[in-house]
């Protein structure tokens, strides 16, 4: 196994009285794609959101245990959450570009971080758009509104926006579920390229997508981590019957 990027120890999360994640222990390898699968309500999105403390925004959420990124517990009191979210970027199901130009969408993060020099920003925008495999499609209309792009392009723009602040980890919550097959395949190809530089954790309902894009797969059910392993093993010969039943569609 590769070096470990994120180590999760005894992670438990409640929403009010409801137990959403129960004692999760998991080690996410560096510069690999880890897919989280499981039926709706199993806790996979909640789990994803614990990795950059997005659940902090939910008042009823109570969390215990540890999430160590590069050996540093992100739930330590002295952790700067804004900084954390720079290192751990996130891409959502529905593309959510700002109502600004394509250029400004990507330059937004770096600007907030105090980068104002035009030349530097130009370079960041170009590199990020190139890494997100959308540069060739938008390079001649960087000043146009991002809202004029197609759904698939908007999603890749959002990925470029995530990359612009130079994260180590990218969390993706159903990044292609609202896209047509061609755009989906572009996103999947992109994920494949990005894993050379970034650690990617992706939530997907599409089992075939999990199989195609990920190196490791974690199966969640009722807030528990049921099985974690190499994707090729999970999809050919899973160890646990619940996993087998879920991926073959015989659940419940």
């Amino acid at each position: 196994m590769k070096e470990i990027k994120i180590k999760i120890k005894d992670l438990t999360l409640h929403y009010g009285q409801k137990l959403a994640l129960n004692n999760i222990c998991l080690e996410i390898p560096d510069r690999r794609v880890t897919a989280l699968i499981g039926p709706s309500g199993c806790g996979k999105s909640t789990f994803l959101r614990t990795l950059n403390r997005m659940n902090d925004l939910i008042p009823s959420a109570r969390i215990s245990g540890e999430v160590l990124i590069d050996e540093l517990n992100i739930y330590d009191r002295n952790i700067d959450v804004v900084n954390l979210r720079k290192r751990v970027g996130m891409v959502f199901q529905k593309s959510n570009p700002f109502s600004k130009s394509i250029y400004e969408n990507v330059a937004y993060g770096p600007r907030i971080n105090g980068i104002n020099e035009r030349k530097v920003l130009d370079e960041i925008v170009e590199t990020s758009l190139k890494r997100a495999a959308i540069w060739n499609e938008v390079k001649d209309r960087l000043r146009d509104s991002a809202l004029g792009l197609s759904g698939g392009q908007q999603q890749r723009l959002c990925i470029a926006r995530t990359l612009s602040v130079n994260p180590d980890v990218i969390l993706m919550d159903e990044p292609a579920s609202a896209l047509d097959p061609l755009s989906t395949s572009k996103i999947e190809e992109l994920i494949h390229q990005l894993k050379e530089q970034y650690t990617i954790v992706i939530v997907t309902h599409n089992m075939q997508q999990a199989a195609r894009v990920s190196d490791y797969t974690a199966f969640f059910y009722l807030g528990e981590l049921i099985e974690f392993g190499k994707t090729k093993t999970i999809f050919t010969n899973p160890t646990i019957k619940q996993t087998e039943d879920y991926i073959t569609g015989r659940f419940g």
Binding site: M207, T236, P238
Partner: peptide, 9 residues
């Protein structure tokens, strides 16, 4: 059907 696991085998 894109079979997996025991179905694939």
């Amino acid at each position: 059907q894109q079979p997996v696991a025991s179905d694939l085998r």
